[in-house]
Simulated assay, not measured.
Amino acid sequence: MLKVPPPHQMAITAACVALNLAVGTIANLLSLPLSLDTIGSLTGAALLPPALAIAVGAITAVLGWAVINPVYPYYIGTQISVVIAALAVMRLIGFDRLWKAVILGAVVAIVAVLVSAPVTVLVFGGATVPAMTANNAVPIASEQSIWSAVTIGGLLIEFADKLVVALIAWALVRRRLRGSA
């Protein structure tokens, strides 16, 4: 029998999806080099049961198509993998200290690159990748393969993005837990 989550968990789930979409949209509109579209996913991983946290990532990818960029559904696996990696890291080391947030950001960045690079190469295998960033364009211009450009360039930008995202999520979770005490 399907168990309906309590209303407060559903509210946190909706807030995390809204956070991902709002910040992702702002980053996209401002053409920021960081997407910042997983703040809600990492926050959800810390505050929600695993199924709802994974739902945050999946719903973000689906709704991101209409709100942020039409390529978002291709990266549903990345969003889900980021949440699963965050859940695993949080279970192993916790999420109660700043240094743990830094480790979480690094691990999630590596997972994001490993999962999204093949999608980028398969879906956008030509030289005109709609999600192309400056960090990918330089290696491609220097005649590296798109696979090298996406993984090497992607790792640099994902590391910066996921580090910022993890620190923001850590601050939000800390604030939430302090506010409920």
Rank of each mutant, 00 (worst) to 15 (best):
W65I: 01
I68N: 01
A58L: 15
I54P: 05
P73M: 09
I76G: 10
S41L: 10
L52N: 05
G64F: 00
A46K: 03
A58M: 14
G77T: 07
L48G: 11
P50E: 07
A46I: 03
P50T: 13
L48E: 08
G64T: 01
V67L: 13
I68D: 01
A55C: 13
L63F: 14
L47S: 05
I39V: 13
G44R: 09
S41R: 08
T38Q: 12
P70N: 07
G44M: 08
L48D: 12
T43F: 12
I68Y: 04
G77N: 13
L48S: 10
T38C: 11
I76W: 11
G64E: 02
P73T: 07
A61V: 02
P50Q: 10
P70E: 00
L47E: 05
W65R: 11
D37I: 00
I54D: 06
L63R: 02
A46G: 06
A53E: 10
V62G: 10
L63W: 07
A55S: 15
I39K: 05
A46T: 02
D37E: 14
P73R: 02
A53Q: 05
N69D: 15
G77V: 09
L63M: 15
L52Q: 15
S41I: 03
L47T: 07
P70C: 01
G57L: 08
V71Q: 12
V56Q: 09
G57K: 04
G44Y: 05
G77Y: 09
V62R: 04
L48K: 10
L63H: 03
P49N: 14
L52I: 09
D37L: 09
A58N: 08
P50H: 11
V62T: 13
L42K: 03
L52E: 11
V67W: 04
V62A: 14
N69C: 06
Y72E: 14
L48F: 12
T60N: 00
Y72P: 00
S41Q: 03
P70R: 00
A51P: 05
L63N: 08
W65M: 15
A55H: 08
G57W: 09
A51T: 12
I54A: 14
Y74D: 11
T43W: 08
